[in-house]
Amino acid sequence: MNKRIKVLISVLMCTSLFSATVFADDLSDKKQQSSDVEAEIDAGKARVNELESKKDTVTREVEALNSEAEALNKEINELNSKIEVSNKNLEELKVKTEELTKAIEDNQHVVNERMRTLYKSQGQSYIEILLESQGITDMLKRIDYLMRMIKFDKEVMEEFEKNQRELASVTKEAEEEKAKLQDDKMVVEVKTNELNAKTAAKNALVAGLEADIAAEEAKIAQMEAEFNELLSAINTMEAEAVQDERPSRGDAGSTTAGNGDIFSITGGMAYPITSTFDPRPNPITGVWESHGALDLGAPHGAGVFALKAGTVAYSGWMSGYGNVVVINHGDMSTLYAHNSVLNVSAGEQVSGGQRIASVGSTGNSTGPHIHFEVIIGGVKVDPAPYYIY
C-alpha cells in the first residue's frame, strides 16, 4: 500500500470518527433537551395540580359563604315579616288609642255638662237643691244621690285613664320591639354586605386561578409538542433503516424469535404483563393517558436484557422514567425504564441478550417492574410481539 493510499484511508477514518463524534454529541444534546423539557412538563403539571387544589379550596370557601349568606337572607326575611306584624299592631294600637282618647273626652264633656247642670240647673246650687228637700229623709236621699253620681263619674274617668295608661304602655313596648327588630335587621344587612364582598373577592380569586390554570396548560401543551418533536428527532437520528416489520412471538422457553436476532428481555423468565400498550389511568395521577409501553411484573434486582444487538444511545436518569437505557438497533430503538442499576454506558456496543440493567422502581413508579418500549421510525409500537421467553 503506497503512502498516498495510507493518507487517504487515515483521512477517511478521521472523518468517520469525527462524524460519529458529532452525531453522538448531537444525539446526547437532543436527549438532554428532551429530558429538560420533560422535567419542565412535569413541573408544569405539578403547578397545575397545585392551582387546581387552591381552586377547589377557594370554591369550597365560596360555597360556605353562599350558605352563610343564604342563612342571613332568611333571617332578614323573618325580621321583615316580624316588622310588618309590628307595624300592623302599632296601627291597631293607634286606632284604639284614638278611640279611647275620644271616649275620655266625650265622657269628660258629659261630666262637665252634668256638673254645670247640678250647679246651675234653674239657677240653683247644691245648697238650694238640698234646701228644697222635703224633710230630713228627702235631703239625705238627695245627698246620697249626688254623692253616687259624683263617685260614678269619678270611677268612669279613672277607668278610662287606666285603660289609656295601659294602652300607652303597650304601644311603647310595641314601638321598642319594632325599633329592636329594625336594629337587628340593620346588623344582619351589614353582615350580608360583608359576606357578599368576601364572596365577590373569592369568586375573583377563582377566576384568576382558572386563568392561571389555562395559561399553565397552554404552556404544557407547547412543551409537550416540543418534547414530541425532540423525541421524533432522536428516533430519526437513531434509526438508520426503518422497517415496520414485527416478529412473531416465539414458543414458550425460546430465547429467539423467527428471524433469529431477537432475545428475551427477561433472560428467559416468563414475568406477567401488568400493563399493556393501550391507554390506561396513570397509576400515580389517575389521569387517563396513553401508556405506549409494556410493563412486566419482575422482582427487584432481576436482570434486564437487550432485545437485540445495538449501540447504547442513552444511559442515565430521565424525568419520569427514572434510570433508563435506550438502545439503537439500527432498524428500531428500545427503551428500558425504572431500573435500579444500569450496567451499560452511552456509546457502548451491546449484543442481543446481554444484561444491561437491574429491575427497580425509580422515577414515576408504584413498584418494581420492567418498562419496555419499542420505537420504529419515531413512532412507539406495541412491544407485546417482542416479549419472548
Rank of each mutant, 00 (worst) to 15 (best):
N2F: 06
R4K: 13
K6G: 02
K6C: 07
V7D: 03
I9W: 14
V11F: 14
C14M: 11
C14K: 12
S16G: 05
D26M: 04
Q33N: 15
D36I: 15
A39Y: 08
I41M: 06
L51W: 08
E52V: 06
S53L: 07
E63F: 00
A64T: 12
A64I: 14
E70Q: 07
L72W: 05
S81I: 14
K82W: 00
N87L: 11
N87C: 07
K88G: 12
E91V: 09
V95G: 05
K96V: 04
E99Y: 01
T101W: 05
K102V: 14
I104N: 03
D106E: 06
R114E: 10
R116F: 13
K120D: 09
Q122I: 06
E128L: 07
I129L: 14
L130R: 10
E132W: 00
E132M: 15
S133M: 01
I136R: 10
I143T: 15
D144L: 13
D144N: 13
M147Y: 12
R148I: 11
D153Y: 13
F160V: 01
E161N: 08
N163P: 01
Q164L: 11
E166Q: 03
S169F: 12
K172E: 15
A174D: 02
E176D: 13
K180W: 03
Q182P: 01
Q182Y: 06
D184F: 09
M186Y: 14
V188D: 02
E189A: 13
E189C: 01
E194H: 04
N196W: 09
N196Q: 15
A201W: 02
A204K: 14
V206L: 04
E210F: 00
I213T: 15
I213A: 11
E216L: 09
A221M: 02
E226N: 09
E226A: 08
F227W: 08
F227K: 07
L231E: 06
S232K: 15
A233Q: 12
I234M: 03
N235P: 06
T236H: 03
A239E: 12
E240S: 03
E245Q: 11
D251Y: 10
A257W: 06
G258W: 14
G258K: 13
G260T: 02
I262V: 13
F263H: 14
G268Y: 11
A270D: 15
D278E: 10
P281L: 05
G286P: 01
E289H: 06
A293E: 03
A298Y: 10
L307R: 05
T311H: 04
V325M: 01
M332L: 12
V344C: 02
S351E: 08
G352D: 00
G353T: 09
T362S: 13
G363D: 01
G367K: 07
P368F: 07
V374F: 00
I376Y: 00
P383R: 00
A384E: 15
A384V: 10
A384G: 03
P385F: 00
